[in-house]
Design a protein around this nucleic acid. Structure first.
Lengths: 232, 232
DNA sequence: ACCTGAACACCGTTCAAGT
DNA sequence: ACCTGAACACCGTTCAAGT
């Protein structure tokens, strides 16, 4: 889950000669992209569309943005500022949970972004801050460095996926149709060919409702035990 | 992770009148798509490209395939036949591990497909069989239905993500450049602003090498403990 | 260094019309 | 029912040329 951080392309340090300040900038581009993303969805965040928003041509963006994926990742990071600003309370476990739930909440409202976050290695300053915070909680809980690093990876992954999945079943008529299709398949599973799916069919259909919490809990339990064993 | 299964569009049952058998069929389309995917990558699996492969126009595919995403999902399911054919040995935990490792291996060789599998709800007959098998192992281990259903979800997610991430760092010059960028950021993390990232920096950079195994182990440990507690 | 218009090489999907 | 060509409405990215 951990990807690069901050702009992959900053405007190069300006050469002394002509100081005429640039008309564009990464911040302006990302803000315009975030605006369009919030209003119309990340799918509408295309080079051409954002350039038009800034009254220029798509080619102009390439000074500040590596490619479309880079731009999408920057939009997500922009949204993560809210998570960074939160100050969860409680013991370290509670704070891990609260942080992840808050992170997931941002993505649940933005299905397409959640999918993107899963597919692309995440990047950005706010994301790095999130990683740092979660690592801190785990260290506080006595988790070792290797376990903590891997666990943060796992926890963010689970939170992202949970949001993406939860998001899939919300809104859009198409999602509704897909859910119906899935339900048809799972419920109709032949007990002879797929006995276990048939047996667990009610549980397989349980979406949302505490699943993220269970996932987080399971990972923390797994960690906990590992930690104790090491201490013996 | 669990999506719909089997063709979302079968050719409608043929009306009695004109039996002239269809020129196309979902199977032919998926096979052509799988061929192109193996040879040139899933990104080249476009409606137009596959239609050309079958000497027809893109519009013709829409009788058998709902959209591009559906086609991509079908390609992945096609590849999963090999996992289905395997017969792992050992106790239930070992078989869970072996199955997931085999599944991940398919995806590690196909980076773009792994990313797709993360972003799209998975579908298909072979995937359903995989879910059924994993559920069976967990039931064998005494895991309850709800926990098993959620755990399978979590385990497949972890395996898929692990493959996607591992895959990101292989091949392609671009991936190499991204890795270097990531390394630069993580290693250069300021200990004052990101103390925990700085502390765990070596571990954050450890990619591959047992991480999937650790992730699976952590989930199984978390499960195990849950199970024992319930039995008391 | 930064910005631009134009060009290149593509896309997915729909639709009216054919058989 | 199935298949088709053409059309609509877009894409990302590169490049030579300008300031």
């Amino acid at each position: 889950m951990l990807g690069a951080v901050e702009s992959r392309r900053q405007p190069k340090a300006r050469a002394g000669r002509r100081p005429a300040k640039p008309l564009l900038g990464r911040a302006e581009i990302v803000e315009a992209a975030a605006r369009v993303s919030e209003a119309e969805g990340i799918d509408r965040v295309t080079m051409r569309r954002i350039a038009a928003e800034l009254s220029t041509g798509a080619a102009s963006l390439y000074v500040y943005v590596r490619d479309t994926e880079d731009l999408h990742a920057a939009v997500l990071d922009h949204l993560l500022a809210g998570v960074r600003a939160s100050r969860p309370r409680g013991d370290w476990r509670a704070r891990v949970r609260a942080t992840l739930v808050r992170y997931a909440a941002v993505l649940v409202e933005r299905p397409a972004l959640a999918r993107m976050a899963l597919a692309a290695p995440l990047t950005g300053d706010n994301y790095l801050a999130l990683v740092d915070r979660l690592l801190g909680y785990l260290f506080e809980g006595g988790v070792g460095e290797r376990e903590a690093a891997w666990a943060v990876d796992l926890l963010l992954l689970v939170a992202t996926a949970s949001a993406a999945e939860h998001a899939t079943w919300r809104g859009s008529a198409r999602a509704g149709a897909e859910l119906a299709e899935l339900e048809r398949i799972v419920r109709g599973a032949d007990p002879r060919t797929h006995p276990n799916v048939a047996r667990a069919k009610d549980e397989l259909m349980t979406v949302g409702g505490g699943r993220l919490g269970w996932h987080i809990g399971t990972v923390l339990r797994g960690l906990d035990r590992d930690r104790r064993r090491r201490r013996k």
